[in-house]
Design a protein around this nucleic acid. Structure first.
Length: 535
RNA sequence: GGGCCCGUAGCUCAGCAAGGUAGAGCAGCGGGCUUUUAACCCGUUGGUCCCGGGUUCAAAUCCCGGCGGGCCCGCCA
């Protein structure tokens, strides 16, 4: 049984009139695949709910009202961009100049990938929420019940700030909501009068003072309270959160208490999840340790990313290494075959069925899709320079036809377009992430190999004459073995000679197809050149 | 100081809730594809289940105590 079922049991047991699922993210930089875990958990919840006949609402809250606290490593910014530190992210210009704001740039880059990944949510920007009457009322409620709130807070946070209040304000003059002096210090309301509905502040960054009505001021709640207010306003049923917030007596727990005591709402079901690590290190936006969904989609299919993450219980670490993409894709292909009964179920057949249904995007095909194996793609795309794109595609389609034939299914247009997508992905993967031992390249410069004895010379000569015949790939591969035996040269040695001449390495992909792929005249010339040098 | 997760084959991890003869994938090795090299198929090697106690007829699994690794906990989501 898949773990998502237990979560959905708990959701249904709440008996909420409407099921509302939330996730949230501060767009302080590129949004990485760690955050995708949250989206996939919610997406999986929706799928399972739907199976049981329940509709649900899924909102993605973008915390665009949070201040810019630092500029993440790896982001190129214009001169004097530091000026924007302390401004809410939706008021910070897009450093790349292509979106409405800093917040929009990074959010939209993430959001654009989501439908491709099978995630469908409503996008809600926090700065828009704060314009609404419900949020203004929440702020009034907070100010009215400030003593009670301080009391709750004191249970979770120990400091000497007894004049603490959670209402932050955007300065009318410098547009900052916080200032960086030592740490990042929030700009707070100083005085307020709830009867007259007015409040006053003095900007901590620039010193500007102002008094306006609560409706007119740009106000924000500090985040544990902000979270609680959003839960209450949207009547949130469930919101997953990273393990950092879910620590006992941490942010989530305090927000739950605030939600109940101040806003009279029970609060959502807490679903904690562990982080993804990248090469052993936690992904951190501000340190530039990221890997984004957009980058994933360049190198591997989206359903494989769902498989990679949804296969693991939420509280377990996931170690992501881009070098291991071929394993991940193979893993997905395997559960697909299990799903369609093409591979024997090992143990928990039901688990794999459930998992597959959570991974596949859109309608589950009646017949098994025919997949071009990723490892096959890796070899093929490295021959593209020689074969040309069309021949690579043709060979790949022939290959899936063969697989289709074996399982008694005709290749469809979808299968073909999937294969072509995989080839493109593998090409990117080879260029960006492949370890050296998976790569090979035909050497165009002079080979450094020289035959060391008569047998080797004889072998190369024999290969040249083989090439002058029009042998099929199959025949050629066989003849290479025959020739080596006939001459009395070790098979292993024979192959490594050929690879040395062509690749400058003693290993390579299957030889016959490689030889046939090359221009014959060029190849013969090259082999002869090795012989001439020796005499 | 507090919390969470992990420790099982060379690698990545299942198995632990309901204790009953240690599993998978990949890698390796061997074979097949009428004649071994990085597509495909079959077979196969491989493990003090981190350590020490306890409970039990029986512990990878439950309990206690350690060790090792990773991460989190300041209004920095």
């Amino acid at each position: 049984m898949h773990w998502i079922k237990k979560i959905v049991d708990d959701i249904i047991a709440r008996n909420d009139p409407k099921i509302v699922i939330h996730t949230g993210k501060t767009p302080s930089g590129p949004i990485h695949i760690g955050s995708e875990r949250e989206q996939f958990i919610c997406s999986a919840i929706q799928i399972e709910l739907k199976k049981r006949g329940y509709e649900s609402i899924f909102n993605f809250i973008i915390d665009s009202f949070d201040p810019l606290k630092s500029i993440p490593i790896g982001i190129e910014v214009p001169k004097d961009f530091e000026e924007n530190i302390g401004r809410p992210l939706y008021l910070v210009p897009d450093p790349y100049g292509c979106h409405e704001s800093y917040a929009h740039h990074f959010s939209e880059e993430f959001i654009e990938c989501q439908n491709d990944l099978g995630v469908y949510f409503n996008v809600i920007y926090a700065h828009e929420i704060y314009k609404k009457k419900e949020m203004k009322d929440a702020i009034r409620k907070v100010l009215k019940n400030l003593d009670k709130l301080r009391e709750i807070r004191s249970k979770y946070i120990k400091d000497e700030e007894d004049d603490w209040n959670p209402v932050m304000v955007v300065c009318d003059s410098c547009k900052r909501i916080a200032s960086r002096k030592g740490g990042v210090i929030p700009n707070r309301l100083e005085e307020w009068n709830l009867e007259k509905d007015i409040a006053k502040y003095k900007c901590i960054a620039c010193g500007y003072e102002n008094e306006k009505s609560i409706s007119e001021l740009l106000l924000k709640l500090s985040w544990r309270v902000d979270w609680a207010a959003k839960w209450a306003i949207f009547k949130v049923t469930c919101e997953p959160a990273g393990k950092d917030h879910c620590v006992k007596n941490g942010a989530y727990d305090m927000a739950l208490e605030v939600c109940y005591e101040i806003f009279n709402y029970i609060g959502p079901l807490k679903v904690p999840y562990e982080w993804l690590t990248l090469g052993g290190r936690a992904m951190k936006t501000h340190k530039g340790i990221t890997f984004t969904p957009k980058e994933w989609l360049k190198i591997a299919p989206p359903e494989c990313m769902r498989y990679f993450i949804l296969n693991v219980e939420p509280m377990r670490h996931i170690e992501f290494l881009p070098e291991r993409i071929p394993d991940i894709v193979d893993g997905f292909d395997r559960i697909e075959r299990i799903y369609y009964g093409l591979e024997k179920p090992i143990e928990d057949y039901q688990y794999y069925r459930d998992l597959y249904e959570l991974c596949i995007i859109g309608k589950i095909p009646d017949k098994p899709p025919i997949r071009l194996p990723y490892r096959f793609c890796i070899v093929m795309v490295q021959l593209e320079e020689l074969l040309g794109e069309n021949k690579v595609i043709k060979k790949s389609i022939d290959y899936i036809r063969k697989i289709g034939h074996n399982i008694g299914k005709e290749v469809t247009d979808d299968d073909i377009s999937d294969a072509i997508k995989r080839l493109n992905m593998a090409k990117n993967w080879v260029a960006l992430y492949a370890p050296e031992n998976m790569k090979f390249k035909i050497k165009l410069e002079e080979p450094t190999y020289r035959p060391s004895d008569e047998k080797e010379v004889g072998f190369i000569e024999a290969i040249i004459s083989l090439l002058e015949k029009d042998l099929s790939e199959y025949e050629l591969q066989g003849e290479i073995f025959n020739t080596a035996r006939k001459i009395g040269i070790e098979i292993e040695k024979a192959f490594s000679i050929m690879y040395m001449i062509l690749l400058g390495s003693n290993k390579g992909p299957r030889l016959a197809p490689l030889l046939l792929a090359l221009d014959r005249d060029w190849l013969i010339k090259r082999l002869k050149s090795v012989l001439q040098k020796t005499s």
